[in-house]
């Protein structure tokens, strides 16, 4: 206990100085849920640290219950951290007026029983947007998100996918500097997903930042500049997409002329034999190939799919924070 307190005091200066260019910064955030009468507790975030830089699309991955939504809600001031601190657009988490510069789409979004157009207007006005800018924004968003024909219909009659589109529209209505999306494409059809992807890329092109939490790894891989993987309340992996997909543990050696001399390689139609070898044995394998009279064509880190990376980081056998690939928090 004393040690913890001392550590908190010693590292306080570090916690209070998030990266200057980051629009969203978590510094050692922890969140403990307590049941009624405080008999049970659950640590949803455990010293979670992360910096999201301006102008990037950041992919936030994690299995169910990893703490993704908790982290987002703390950033928005919808709940309060048990420890640590953070900033959003340079202001402490929960700063009400800063949220006017934010767009947020919640997971399993739920709305009042109004028409889509009136609802988007309502949220725009809550964020301080007024006519004629608001009128134009609503019109544009209804068109882009293909809501024009159903704008006057009450959202209570909408399908899940249509509701998600309304959710996106209300998140975008104030032309936010930082867009925080929690599972934005979960209920959308393929064409709507493409639309959303285009919107996110346009948002990025305009110099704005997107913080995207999703289970759809293909989406994340396709559009994100950097990815963070959270597991059991801790950030276990952080990096650009190529960084994450390249394995530092294994290398692929492409060779010619050793088809019969060495076992274990995969033979391609062009006669090239590929060996996947542990990083530590890379040199020995190359020497072996040369000794057998073979020719080394290339040596490259093994490319893994994002799904492989995600599964290896979040498997139950891999306790958070103990993985050898772990890169510190705050990129």
């Amino acid at each position: 206990m004393l040690f913890k307190a001392a550590r908190a005091v010693l590292f306080q200066s570090k916690l209070q100085c998030p990266h200057m260019d980051s629009v969203l910064s978590f510094a050692s955030i922890s969140k403990e849920y307590r049941s009624a009468f405080r008999r049970k507790s659950f640590l949803a975030l455990d010293g979670f640290s992360l910096d999201v830089k301006q102008g990037e699309i950041f992919g936030f991955l994690g299995p169910n219950g990893a703490g993704k939504t908790t982290a987002i809600h703390i950033a928005l001031g919808l709940m309060f951290a048990s420890g640590g601190r953070g900033t959003m657009l340079g202001k402490p988490f929960g700063h009400a007026r800063t949220r006017r510069r934010i767009g947020f789409l919640a997971e399993n979004v739920s709305f009042y029983h109004r028409s889509a157009e009136k609802l988007i207007r309502f949220y725009g006005e809550l964020n301080g947007v007024s006519d004629p800018v608001l009128r134009q924004r609503v019109k544009d968003l209804m068109e882009v998100l293909d809501l024009k024909d159903v704008g006057n219909k009450p959202v209570a009659k909408f399908s899940r996918g249509m509701l998600q589109k309304v959710g996106l529209a209300q998140a975008l209505v104030n032309d936010p500097e930082l867009l925080i999306l929690d599972e934005p494409t979960s209920a959308l059809d393929p064409s709507a997903r493409v639309t959303v992807r285009e919107i996110l890329l346009r948002t990025k092109a305009a110099g704005k930042t997107v913080f995207l939490s999703s289970h759809l790894l293909s989406e994340i891989e396709l559009i994100c500049d950097r990815i963070g993987i959270i597991h059991r309340g801790k950030l276990v992996r952080l990096g650009t997409v190529p960084e994450l997909l390249e394995s530092k543990d294994e290398f692929e050696i492409a060779t010619r002329g050793v088809k019969d001399a060495l076992q274990g390689g995969k033979i391609a139609s062009d006669g090239i034999v590929r060996f996947v070898v542990p990083a530590a044995e890379q040199r020995r394998w190359i020497e072996e190939i040369w000794n057998k009279g073979g020719q080394v064509i290339s040596v490259a880190p093994v490319k893994r799919s994002l799904e492989d990376v995600f599964l290896s980081m979040t498997s139950t056998e891999n306790p958070a924070g103990d993985h050898e690939d772990k890169q510190g928090a705050a990129g």
Binding site: L76, G77, L78, A96, R97, T98, R99, R100, R101, I102, F104, A106, N108, V109, S110, F111, Y112, Y123, L126, N127, G128, G167, Q170
Partner: peptide, 15 residues
């Protein structure tokens, strides 16, 4: 309970 509060309180308003 309806989660409608999320969209409202995530806007730039004070509690």
């Amino acid at each position: 309970k309806s989660r409608r509060i999320l969209a409202v309180l995530s806007k730039g308003i004070y509690r």
